[in-house]
Simulated scan of single mutants.
Amino acid sequence: MKALTVRQPWAGAIAHQTKRVENRSWRLPAKHVGTRILIHAGAKPDQDAIVYGDHLDAYSAIVAVATITGCHWADTWDCCGPWAFNKTFHWTLADVIALPEPVPAKGALGFWTPDEDDLAAVLRQDTGVAW
């Protein structure tokens, strides 16, 4: 299973709110469409983000599991709701499950593979989802 690092507050918004689009400057490789991934909260916050909500206390930790359902280029602000940015690739997410306990892990740029201990700690959690 692959993981994707997302800065806070965005990782928390994916895990605990309604953010179902991840804005990226690069196109999602086709092999990832339809796959389950881990959402990892990066070590540093996005300094330009406006923080809403109270689920932003996890940094350098895996916080959720999600399915990537697709990717498209967006020329407008309103194609994927209030979380979507203009002039970016929108990676659409579904079936998001927040982990009851964030799993500390060091992230990386792009997709990365968690080590066996981190993946085992995620899999031990009762998320109600079959892996």
Rank of each mutant, 00 (worst) to 15 (best):
L4F: 03
L4M: 09
H90C: 03
L38Q: 08
Y59T: 10
L4T: 13
R27F: 07
W10V: 03
A66D: 06
I14G: 13
V65W: 07
P45I: 03
H55S: 12
W73M: 01
V63K: 00
K2A: 14
E101G: 10
V65S: 14
T127N: 04
E22C: 06
W26F: 12
G53W: 00
I68Q: 04
C79D: 15
F111Y: 08
A94M: 07
L28C: 07
C80P: 06
A120N: 07
A58F: 06
K2Q: 15
T5M: 03
C79G: 14
G110W: 07
P29K: 02
G53E: 03
D115W: 00
C79W: 12
R27V: 10
V65T: 14
M1Y: 10
A105R: 04
C71W: 00
L93T: 08
A98R: 05
I97P: 09
I97T: 13
Q125R: 02
F111H: 08
I62E: 09
A13V: 11
A11L: 02
P102E: 01
N23P: 02
F89P: 08
W73C: 00
Y59C: 09
A43D: 12
E22I: 04
G42T: 00
T69I: 09
P45A: 01
W91N: 07
V129I: 14
A121I: 01
Y52F: 12
I14R: 06
I62L: 07
T18N: 14
A43I: 08
A66Y: 00
A13W: 15
A64P: 05
F85W: 14
D54E: 15
L109H: 14
L4E: 11
D126S: 13
Q47S: 15
W83A: 15
P114N: 02
T67F: 02
T35E: 15
W26E: 11
A98F: 09
P104F: 05
L123M: 15
E101C: 10
H55F: 11
A3L: 01
D54K: 15
V129N: 12
R24D: 08
D48C: 10
H72G: 13
L38P: 09
D46R: 01
K2G: 09
Q17R: 15
W77H: 12
A43C: 07
A84V: 04
L99P: 11
P114V: 00
L109S: 13
L99I: 06
A58W: 04
W91P: 05
T88N: 14
G110Q: 09
K2T: 12
H55L: 06
A13K: 13
H72F: 13
A84N: 06
V129H: 14
A15C: 06
D126I: 08
L28E: 04
P114M: 00
Q125F: 03
S25F: 03
D57S: 13
C71N: 13
P100N: 04
H32T: 11
T76V: 07
L99F: 09
L99K: 07
V21Q: 08
M1Q: 11
V122H: 05
A74Y: 05
T127S: 05
V63T: 05
G70A: 04
V122P: 06
W131K: 01
V103W: 05
V6W: 01
A11K: 03
A43S: 11
C80G: 09
A58D: 00
T67L: 01
A105Q: 07
W131R: 03
M1N: 11
G110L: 03
G70D: 02
A15M: 05
M1S: 10
